[in-house]
């Protein structure tokens, strides 16, 4: 397609205009978030609609980092999100592979059940889950969060992985298996490298889902030292006032790990392009 673009400058201009549009749409609200975080409290309302604040302060960041427990919440969130992403992707890759490569009794039923788990509002099952976890003595534990998050993310991650496996011709691994590889060897040597973009995307989704999950973290964790970051954000909204500056500063900080994570998995997302398997 790039050949087409090179031939027609109008198309190229339209393309860059579209890119700029997407960028502005994605970044403007984030810019506003940062703006509020660096605007001194006294100016938040008086200069509400100005694009640039007349003076800038980093107090909010300093307060969030030094005076609150946010760094601890960060650690907790990172632990939970990485743990969830790793476990979910492994489990889902196995399940997705089974769905993609086998026909077996109960397959449709399993798919239907997985879908149904996504259809019922979590609100209605939070009470039973709380009871079960409380009886197991696992309240206030980050491990329980990883288990719950993993369970809820498996269906989507499985469907995602299944589609990626579906996209990889069976002939490849079968050829490898004919050559004497075991299924695992075939998976590892042939299929795995091809699913890297899929694995990357899945890891990314599960990580961000766990990173910003609020309901379970709120309900299952009451102890301050096991709180995750989104619950910590809620504490800036008290009954009588909202500490906008600090909350937005904490929010900006929250974007950093996700950003880094995306840049990291990016290599795998664009891998298809660079490896030359696909031409743009």
């Amino acid at each position: 397609m790039s050949a087409v673009l090179r031939r027609r400058p109008a198309v190229a201009i339209a393309k860059y205009a579209a890119l700029a549009g997407y960028l502005a749409f994605a970044l403007f609200p984030l810019y506003w978030l940062i703006k509020i975080a660096i605007t001194p409290d006294a100016l938040i309302y008086t200069e509400g609609t100005q694009l640039l604040p007349s003076s800038v302060t980093f107090d909010n960041f300093a307060k969030v980092i030094l005076q609150t427990d946010f760094m601890a919440y960060f650690g907790n969130s990172l632990y939970v999100s990485l743990g969830t992403a790793a476990v979910t992707t492994l489990v889902a890759a196995a399940a997705g592979y089974a769905f993609s490569r086998f026909d077996f009794a109960g397959k449709k039923l399993l798919i239907a059940v997985m879908l149904i788990t996504q259809m019922f509002p979590l609100l209605m099952i939070i009470a039973p889950i709380y009871k079960i976890i409380s009886q197991m003595g696992m309240l206030n534990s980050l491990t329980s969060l990883i288990v719950v998050y993993t369970a809820f993310n498996i269906p989507f991650a499985t469907f995602l992985m299944q589609s990626f496996f579906d996209g990889i011709p069976k002939d490849l691994e079968e050829a490898a298996m004919m050559d004497g590889c075991s299924r695992f060897q075939a998976l590892y040597k042939v299929v795995f490298p091809l699913t890297l973009p899929g694995l990357g995307a899945t890891l990314g989704f599960v990580f961000t889902a766990a990173w910003s999950e609020l309901l379970f973290a709120l309900m299952l964790i009451s102890k301050n030292d096991a709180m995750t970051f989104p619950v910590g954000l809620l504490t800036f909204v008290s009954k009588f006032s909202v500490d906008w500056g600090q909350m937005m500063a904490a929010g900006v900080l929250a974007l950093v790990p996700s950003c880094l994570f995306f840049i990291f998995i990016q290599r795998y997302l664009v891998q298809g392009l660079t490896s030359g398997a696909v031409k743009g």
Binding site: A26, L27, P29, L30, G251, F262, L269, V270
Partner: peptide, 14 residues
């Protein structure tokens, strides 16, 4: 790519 994907990473509440 990293920038346009950022909104997905913002906690819903925020």
């Amino acid at each position: 790519q990293a920038l346009v994907f950022l909104p997905w990473a913002v906690p819903t509440f925020l």
